[in-house]
């Protein structure tokens, strides 16, 4: 896995640790994160489906990480917008993987898309598209 030295930090923020987000893979402008299944993130306690909010969080984090990977520094980012389509629920007990890609970067804006899946990226559980604004400051993680 060819990652820049800052990439791990995005999984070390307090909330990323709370959800136990794990970096699985990284490409030139893309990354894959894992959102491990946990009882704490269930939204539908009858079917044991994961809450859409936990999926949105993993997607937002993965998209930020994909931008870090492409820009290869810790220039800070803020999400402008994010749209998530929930295609099918993930089977209870299974981890969700998020593949996120930064498909265009300007001086000010980063454009991203992401796919959430369990085993097969060809059968996604959710897809997302978003844009981020880039700052001139460094992402300050202590």
């Amino acid at each position: 896995m060819d990652t820049n030295p800052y990439l791990e930090k995005i999984c070390q923020t307090p909330h990323a640790r709370k959800l136990n987000l794990k970096l699985v893979n990284a490409g030139e402008r893309s990354i894959t994160l894992k959102l491990p299944y946990s009882k704490e993130i269930i939204g539908d306690s009858v079917n044991n489906y994961i809450h859409g909010g936990a999926v949105s969080t993993a997607i937002d984090t993965a998209c930020g990480a994909a931008i870090f990977q492409l820009q290869n520094n810790l220039r800070a980012l803020a999400t402008l917008d994010l749209r998530v389509d929930h295609i099918r629920p993930a089977a209870p007990g299974t981890d969700i993987n998020i593949f996120a890609e930064c498909y265009h970067l300007t001086h000010t804006i980063a454009f991203v898309r992401a796919t959430a899946f369990t085993d097969d990226i060809g059968a996604p559980t959710a897809t997302a598209v978003g844009s981020f604004i880039r700052s001139n400051k460094q992402f300050p993680v202590s």
Binding site: T13, P14, T57, D60, F139
Partner: peptide
């Protein structure tokens, strides 16, 4: 629920959730 410890700011995903 923090996403950026230095400010500190909430994680955007928490706001969405």
């Amino acid at each position: 629920n923090i996403g950026n410890p230095a400010i500190p700011a909430l994680h955007g995903g928490v706001v969405a959730g």
